[in-house]
Simulated scan of single mutants.
Amino acid sequence: MITAAPDGVYRAARDLDMLSIHSPLFDAVMWARGVPDRVRRRPVATPPSMRVSDLFETAAAGDRADVEAQPWVALGERAGREIVFGAVGKVWKPTIEWRRVEPGDYADFEEPGWAKMAAAFVVHPYGARRSLLTYEARTACTDPVSTTRFGRYWTLVSPGVGIVLRGALRAVEAAAETGEGSTRGDES
């Protein structure tokens, strides 16, 4: 339960920058994800931001360079209520191999060897000044071998993913309850 109106919670969820979340556990999880690249002496790629709204705004602006560099795509939005985004990747590899799939092709993508991930933030009104925010994620693999690989991977990483998602929900809650309506710290 978040003590903020649904519109403010929605704006905070949409403006969430995953790179703005900091806690010792969250930072440890993010550091661990880069270990395979560090061991191979490769640079650990960190984008300047990972804002949920960028997925929707970049797609709308049509900037091909930014669009193609981002594996996550905007899958749908019900303004003020729900945002859905997804990606296709081989997340079980030490360095994730992403496959850019355009939003219109996402649902029908079936090429063997991949995991299709979709996630959503949904805001539920709970009175006039309170809201329930849910985060839901689903993964569907495109063949039995990928399903097995993903299952082994998920067994290993699910505790870390839980830390990341709880951090994201707390960041949205803090932004919404302080009236910022944005997790970037500025007014949009």
Rank of each mutant, 00 (worst) to 15 (best):
2 I>D: 06
2 I>L: 12
4 A>E: 08
4 A>P: 02
5 A>M: 08
5 A>W: 01
6 P>L: 14
7 D>I: 03
9 V>Y: 03
12 A>G: 04
12 A>V: 05
15 D>A: 11
16 L>P: 09
17 D>K: 06
18 M>R: 13
19 L>F: 15
19 L>Y: 13
20 S>L: 15
20 S>M: 12
22 H>T: 12
22 H>M: 11
24 P>I: 13
28 A>G: 12
28 A>W: 15
28 A>K: 11
33 R>G: 03
35 V>R: 11
38 R>E: 15
40 R>H: 07
40 R>T: 05
43 P>F: 11
45 A>M: 04
47 P>M: 07
47 P>F: 07
48 P>L: 02
49 S>T: 12
49 S>G: 06
51 R>H: 02
51 R>W: 00
53 S>M: 07
56 F>N: 00
57 E>S: 10
58 T>I: 13
58 T>E: 01
58 T>D: 10
59 A>I: 00
59 A>K: 05
61 A>G: 09
61 A>E: 12
61 A>T: 10
62 G>M: 11
64 R>S: 12
64 R>M: 14
65 A>D: 15
65 A>N: 07
68 E>S: 07
68 E>P: 01
69 A>Y: 08
70 Q>F: 02
71 P>L: 05
72 W>F: 13
74 A>K: 04
75 L>D: 01
75 L>P: 04
77 E>S: 00
77 E>A: 05
78 R>E: 14
79 A>V: 09
79 A>W: 05
79 A>L: 06
80 G>A: 08
80 G>F: 08
80 G>P: 00
81 R>Y: 04
81 R>K: 15
82 E>D: 11
83 I>L: 15
84 V>P: 00
84 V>S: 09
85 F>Y: 14
85 F>T: 06
85 F>W: 14
86 G>D: 07
86 G>S: 03
87 A>N: 01
91 V>P: 02
92 W>S: 05
100 R>I: 06
100 R>Q: 02
101 V>G: 02
103 P>R: 07
103 P>E: 08
103 P>M: 05
103 P>C: 01
104 G>T: 00
105 D>Q: 07
106 Y>Q: 04
110 E>M: 09
114 W>T: 01
114 W>Y: 14
115 A>W: 00
116 K>S: 03
117 M>H: 04
123 V>L: 08
128 A>Y: 08
131 S>F: 11
131 S>R: 05
131 S>N: 05
132 L>G: 11
132 L>P: 03
133 L>H: 06
134 T>G: 08
134 T>M: 12
134 T>K: 13
139 T>I: 15
139 T>C: 07
139 T>H: 02
141 C>R: 09
141 C>M: 09
143 D>Y: 04
143 D>N: 06
143 D>S: 09
144 P>I: 12
145 V>W: 07
145 V>C: 01
147 T>C: 09
148 T>W: 15
148 T>R: 15
148 T>F: 15
148 T>P: 03
151 G>K: 13
151 G>Q: 11
152 R>M: 15
153 Y>C: 03
154 W>G: 06
155 T>M: 07
155 T>D: 09
156 L>G: 03
158 S>M: 10
159 P>F: 12
160 G>Q: 02
162 G>L: 03
163 I>R: 01
164 V>E: 00
164 V>G: 00
166 R>I: 05
166 R>H: 13
167 G>M: 09
172 V>F: 04
173 E>F: 01
174 A>G: 02
175 A>D: 00
175 A>S: 09
176 A>I: 15
176 A>K: 04
178 T>Q: 09
179 G>F: 03
181 G>T: 07
186 D>P: 04
188 S>G: 06
